[in-house]
């Protein structure tokens, strides 16, 4: 690791005023420390923000607020999360290992970098690591790459499971920035970005802003939900394709559906077309298959990952079926 200073700001305001481009916030460290060991992240200083950020989960009848420092395992065990927002717990438990979930924070989960092997291997070209160097995966080993929303500059995928559930539930990211007293808000669908011609930017968080929490609006999806994650081994692996699904059923019809995927794009991907198609339908295997086909048809796989299209179709069908038996 490159030598760095470790600072412990005593308030959020002090943390923000000390933040610069070569200074990074440190929370759980599960991703950042690893990137520093590999000299992919080379900050001059770290600001340990865990003690000054909220580690509380609070809820009213209208929303759930998860503090930025809440550990993944605490969120997955929380009574309110389990009773009213169980999709969140389901997604968290599909990710990482118990040890890492005990360390990783909510805000850190949103900010984790891609697990694209070309990003991690410093001997290979990567536009995300070294802008302008070229994308190694695009014409290389693209098995783990994106199948939608990719650009000629980057085909990396977003690695989080929690974020897929947050995208499906229309969450919001709360943050603070220098000179603003009020907490600022970004809708979750606009938080992460597509690579375009600037893949080094993962999200639209303003520079030097500090995430303070994630807010999830009250929703009717606490009964019929599912999280399906397909990967190279049964546990403790990143997704090839994952699907968060939620249905709001009334009588024999679907009032509203939510479908989001991980492992397919540079950001958590919502399948709006399939969601709209499901609205008002009577759930059946045929309807689910048709919705899944709508989503799969939107994709544009790379040379080495055409299998993901079929995998996605199957995963959506299974997830929707699992919603009925959840």
């Amino acid at each position: 690791m490159k030598p760095f200073d470790l600072l412990r700001p005593s308030s959020i305001a002090k943390a923000i005023s000390a933040k610069q481009s070569q200074v990074q916030f440190l929370a759980g460290g599960t991703n950042l420390v690893d990137l520093m060991k590999k000299h992919i992240a080379t900050p001059d200083a770290l600001l340990d923000v865990t003690p000054i950020l909220s580690s509380q989960i609070t809820g009213s009848t209208e929303t759930l607020l998860i503090g930025a420092a809440v550990k993944n395992s605490s969120a997955a065990m929380d009574k309110l999360v389990l009773s009213s927002y169980p999709l969140i717990a389901k997604a968290i438990l599909a990710g990482a290992s118990p040890q890492i979930r005990n360390m990783a924070s909510t805000a850190g989960n949103l900010l984790q970098r891609t697990r694209c092997p070309y990003f991690y291997d410093t001997t290979l070209p990567c536009n995300k690591r070294n802008p302008g160097e070229g994308c190694g995966m695009r014409e290389g080993e693209s098995r783990m790459g994106a199948i939608i929303g990719h650009s000629e500059h980057c085909v990396a995928v977003h690695p989080s499971d929690l974020c897929i559930a947050l995208a499906a539930l229309d969450a919001e990211v709360l943050y603070t920035i220098a000179g603003e007293k009020k907490p600022m808000v970004i809708p979750f669908k606009d938080f992460h970005r597509l690579p375009g011609d600037a893949p080094e930017k993962d999200n639209n968080l303003p520079q030097n802003a500090l995430i303070t929490g994630v807010r999830i609006p009250k929703n009717p999806f606490s009964k019929n939900y599912a999280y399906v994650k397909l990967r190279d081994r049964d546990s403790y692996a990143f997704a090839l394709v994952s699907v968060a699904a939620a249905l709001h059923l009334q009588g024999d019809r679907i009032v509203e559906a939510r479908l989001a995927s991980g492992g397919v794009a540079h950001k958590p991907w919502r399948w709006y077309q399939a969601e709209n198609f499901l609205k008002g339908k009577i759930p059946s295997a045929e309807v689910f298959a048709e919705a899944a086909a709508l989503a799969a048809d939107e994709t544009n796989p790379l040379v080495g990952n055409a299998f993901k299209k079929l995998m996605l179709k199957g995963a959506i069908e299974v997830a929707l079926q699992n919603c009925l038996t959840a």
């Binding site: 470790l6 440190l26 460290g29 420390v33 040890q99 890492i100």
Partner: peptide, 11 residues
């Protein structure tokens, strides 16, 4: 339980 390899001593 945590992973000591990804935990800085300062943490």
């Amino acid at each position: 339980r945590v992973l000591s390899c990804l935990t800085l001593a300062a943490m």
